[in-house]
């Protein structure tokens, strides 16, 4: 019975994901495509939960659907011109070639997936024992956190570099020509509603608690720097939308410091381990947990601030009521 329900659920989920993806591509209105893409992200979060990947479900809901959706919608606000589909329909040959390309890509992808799934699994309790012993040596109980910050710490280090590059690149584009109206994102319009103050007052402390909890729980369960950073970034988006944070043309020294902090602390930890005669980011026994914790705190802040700045579309942000406010 339970298994059957699971299959029905997975089938419905599969159908919804594929239909939503098709509508995202096919819809005539850009706004509809963006909203459906956000819905697609939320269903992906359910798919991650079904695939026993709670870390990803959390990250997808906060980043994939939340932050990406906010970025897309704020871009849509600025680019309202919905290009009409070009007057003449594409030539039949062109259309067929596109469909052929898509089918080929999907086919190659499916074959690749089939090949991946038929790779032999290291079976037996011995393999599991071995993996658990390795994870235990890192000082954290959660396998995904152990992989992110110890076994494959390089990935995470370089990822922070990519995030920083994205911010710098976006900033270069903004600096070249700032938006015409200063505070274009503020939803208050010509006056605040009492609801906004109540919501911000209730949610802000709660979001900070949740982010701190997610960061802490990452040591032994689903959570960690990414999810905590994304939740904090969501708070930044909320404050930016309600005019509690205003854009600045330049970032102060503090914000620049926070932007590079994750990368700097991570690299420093790597150099320290090298200085004591170990490999880059090979933590000494017993010190792994405190080092990972310090790095994770730095990462959380250095993930949250770039995402807020990217949403804000400005080089810096400052506290304060928007100039529109009564």
């Amino acid at each position: 019975m339970g298994e059957l329900v699971g299959w029905v659920f997975d089938g419905l989920l599969a159908l919804s994901l594929v239909l939503l993806a098709a509508r995202v591509v096919a819809s005539a209105r850009l706004f509809e495509s963006i909203v459906l893409f956000i819905v697609f992200g939320l269903l992906m979060a359910i798919a991650w939960a079904r695939l026993a990947a709670p870390h990803l479900a959390l990250a997808e809901a906060a980043i994939g659907a939340g932050i990406t959706g906010a970025l897309l919608l704020s871009t849509f606000r600025e680019i309202v011109t919905d290009q009409p589909p070009s007057a003449e329909a594409p030539k039949v040959l062109v259309y067929r070639l596109r469909v052929l390309m898509a089918l080929l890509a999907g086919g190659v992808f499916a074959v690749l997936g089939w090949a991946l799934l038929s790779i032999e699994v290291p079976a037996g309790p011995a393999a599991g024992e071995q993996a658990r012993a390795l994870v235990a040596r890192t000082g954290v109980d959660d396998a995904v956190t152990a992989v992110l910050l110890d076994f494959r710490a390089y990935d995470t280090l370089l990822e922070m570099g990519v995030l920083l590059l994205a911010v710098l690149g976006a900033r270069a584009a903004v600096a070249a020509q700032p938006p015409a109206s200063g505070d274009d994102l503020w939803i208050g319009g010509e006056g605040d509603t009492p609801m906004v103050g109540a919501l911000v007052g209730l949610l802000s402390p709660l979001i900070i608690i949740v982010a701190g909890y997610l960061l802490w729980v990452g040591a032994y369960g689903p959570g960690g720097a990414f999810q905590a950073g994304a939740v904090l970034a969501a708070l930044g988006v909320l404050l930016r939308l309600t005019g509690r944070l205003v854009p600045l043309p330049r970032a102060g020294a503090f914000q620049r410091g926070v932007l590079v902090m994750g990368l700097a602390v991570f690299s420093l930890a790597g150099l320290l381990t090298m200085a004591t005669g170990r490999a880059f980011l090979q933590y000494p026994e017993g010190l792994a947990y405190p080092m990972i914790l310090v790095i994770e705190v730095a990462l959380t802040l250095s993930i949250a601030l770039p995402l807020v700045l990217l949403f804000s579309g400005s080089a810096g942000i400052a506290a304060g009521r928007s100039q529109h406010s009564p």
Binding site: I187, T193, M195, L199, L202, L203
Partner: peptide, 9 residues
């Protein structure tokens, strides 16, 4: 909370 706020907006 989220529903009442977004409905209001």
């Amino acid at each position: 909370l989220a529903a009442s706020f977004s409905a209001h907006l």
